[in-house]
């Protein structure tokens, strides 16, 4: 116990010798003010990923399948080559599933996209999900192979939530429905 007393006394005396009282107050004041200012500094908050969609709260996703590479929450994902709309992957659904409470449109825009993993062209159906207000996240507008309104069969601005009980557009999926054969010119 005596040893502890001696140690405490030594430490306190050392502090008293090496610090002025005003100096201590200035240091404490600086720490408090600096600490309060720190969160307001314009530094990256790291809430969004460096790569990917760039939308707040949307983290990178993966299919977990090496033959289906890329981030389904990013416009660059291979299945989205002809997409126009909000990604359901960013809206509570996935690249092939509608968010809860929405209805998948049976009338769709259909095209092909090349999968970089196997260099095969897959037939992709861009089914809309309908019935909730527009999701507003991850707007993608790649439109590879799209044609103007004068070619309505190849224009993706016509069919928005047709064939569903409501015409309220929520987001878009990209469902693989087949494999394109080489002989075709579609």
């Amino acid at each position: 116990m005596k040893e502890l007393d001696k140690l405490s006394e030594g430490v306190v005396r050392f502090l008293a010798r090496s610090n002025s009282r005003r100096g201590v107050l200035a240091t404490i004041g600086g720490v408090i003010t600096g600490g309060a200012m720190f969160p307001a500094l314009p530094v990256a908050r790291a809430s969004g990923p460096a790569a990917g969609s760039g939308y707040d709260g949307v983290t990178p996703q993966s299919t977990g399948n090496p033959m289906d590479p890329g981030d389904p929450a990013s416009c660059d994902y291979w299945r989205y080559c002809g997409i126009d709309g909000f990604l359901c992957s960013c809206c509570g659904g996935s690249a092939s599933v509608c968010p809860p409470g929405t209805e998948m449109s049976p009338i769709t825009w259909i095209g092909t996209c090349r999968n970089p993993a196997d260099d095969v062209n897959y037939i992709i159906s861009y089914n809309d999900c309908c019935g909730k207000p527009a999701c507003g996240r991850c707007l993608c507008n790649r439109n590879d192979g799209e044609r103007p309104m004068t070619r309505p069969q190849l224009n993706n601005d016509i069919n928005w939530c047709l064939g569903t009980s409501t015409a309220a557009y929520t987001c878009s999926t990209a469902v693989i429905i087949g494999v394109a054969v080489k002989e075709g010119n579609g």
Binding site: I123, G178, V181, E183, G184
Partner: peptide
């Protein structure tokens, strides 16, 4: 002549509106 090609063309050119 080529059933796979015909089916693919059906998917790409018809079924979006006429349904599968």
């Amino acid at each position: 002549a080529n059933e796979a090609r015909a089916k693919m063309n059906w998917m790409l050119h018809c079924q979006g509106c006429h349904q599968p």
